[in-house]
Simulated scan of single mutants.
Amino acid sequence: MTSGTSIRRLLLTALLALMLGAPVWSASPNDAGANDRDTEALIARLARPAPATISFTEVRFSKLLRAPLIVSGDLGYAGPESLDRRVTTPYREHTAIRGESVKVEREGEKPRSFALKHAPELRGLLSGFSAMLSGDVASLRKTFDVQLSGDDESWLLELTPTDTKARRRLQRIEVSGRQGEPRCFSMTTTDGATSVLLLGDTAREPVAADVTLVALQRRCSGS
């Protein structure tokens, strides 16, 4: 796993983790103005006080993998400049952001460290997620194009990077949920890889080793 991949996953997990328990809103798909207001209302309500921790399961699909890569662990959020992602199964790894410093420690390997200044697109992502976690819609829109669709029973929040460098590595992020429960967080990179993060009730049931992306999408939608 590269340092960039670790940080992208860390930031994405942090976003969804802090979204748990977001209130229900009433979407109006036939009214563009109402939909914009619904989007702003939802994002504004995503802010959660630190510290917070949550368990997660991640399933990664890639043409370079013969089978999906499934890992699980927990995430800790102590504020915009302090994020921790701990993988406990099937290996042990700790990735941490402290301000501009990033450190990756994996069992049996030498620790790796680097500065966010060497990855400006990742710094942009961190800024965007910090804005999301604080409910700052205006700042979030500086980093992502934000689109909301659906209704209380099945909604989808789609984030597309606006920065050119970020778009070279990240195609889109999708957060899907039902009523007030965000269920899944999917990230698709420009190399065709897709990572699906399961949290809350969605992550409690074990994931089969041969699970397909379609099966996960059905699970995320609650169907």
Rank of each mutant, 00 (worst) to 15 (best):
F56R: 11
A27I: 07
P49G: 01
S28V: 14
S28K: 11
T57D: 01
I43M: 10
W25K: 12
A22I: 01
D38I: 01
F61L: 07
L65S: 07
L46E: 00
A67I: 14
K63E: 13
A47H: 11
I43C: 10
L64Y: 13
K63Y: 08
T53Q: 14
V24D: 07
I54H: 08
A67F: 13
N30I: 03
F56M: 09
K63V: 08
K63G: 04
R45Y: 00
F56K: 08
G33S: 12
D31F: 11
P23E: 02
D31I: 02
R48P: 06
N35G: 05
P23N: 00
A47G: 12
S26Q: 12
A52E: 08
A32N: 11
A50P: 01
R37H: 09
K63T: 13
T57A: 10
N35Y: 05
P51R: 00
A27V: 00
E40V: 09
A44N: 10
P49E: 03
W25G: 09
R45F: 04
T57V: 07
A50Y: 01
F61S: 02
A27R: 03
A67D: 12
S55D: 14
T39W: 03
E58D: 13
P23W: 00
D38G: 06
S62P: 05
A44P: 02
I70Y: 10
R45A: 04
R60W: 14
P51G: 01
V59M: 09
T39R: 15
S55G: 13
V59Q: 12
V59W: 10
A44Q: 15
L69F: 15
V59G: 08
G33D: 10
S55T: 15
R45N: 14
R60S: 12
E58V: 13
A47R: 11
P68Q: 06
R37Q: 07
R48C: 00
A44K: 15
A47I: 02
T39A: 11
A41C: 11
A47L: 03
S28Q: 15
P49S: 08
A34P: 02
F61Q: 03
T39K: 15
A41Y: 03
D31S: 04
R45Q: 06
S55Y: 03
P23V: 00
N30G: 13
N30P: 10
E40L: 03
S62M: 00
R48Y: 10
T39Y: 04
R66S: 15
W25P: 06
F56A: 12
S26P: 06
S28T: 14
A22Y: 04
R66L: 15
L46D: 00
L42A: 11
S26D: 09
G33P: 06
S28Y: 05
L42E: 06
E40P: 09
D36Y: 04
A50I: 01
D38H: 08
A22N: 01
L64C: 07
E40I: 09
P51S: 02
A50R: 03
S55A: 14
V59C: 12
R60Y: 13
L42P: 07
D38N: 10
E40M: 08
L65V: 02
P68V: 02
P68S: 00
I70S: 04
A41H: 08
R60P: 04
I70Q: 05
S62F: 09
D36A: 13
V24M: 09
A22S: 10
E40G: 04
L65W: 05
S55N: 07
E40D: 13
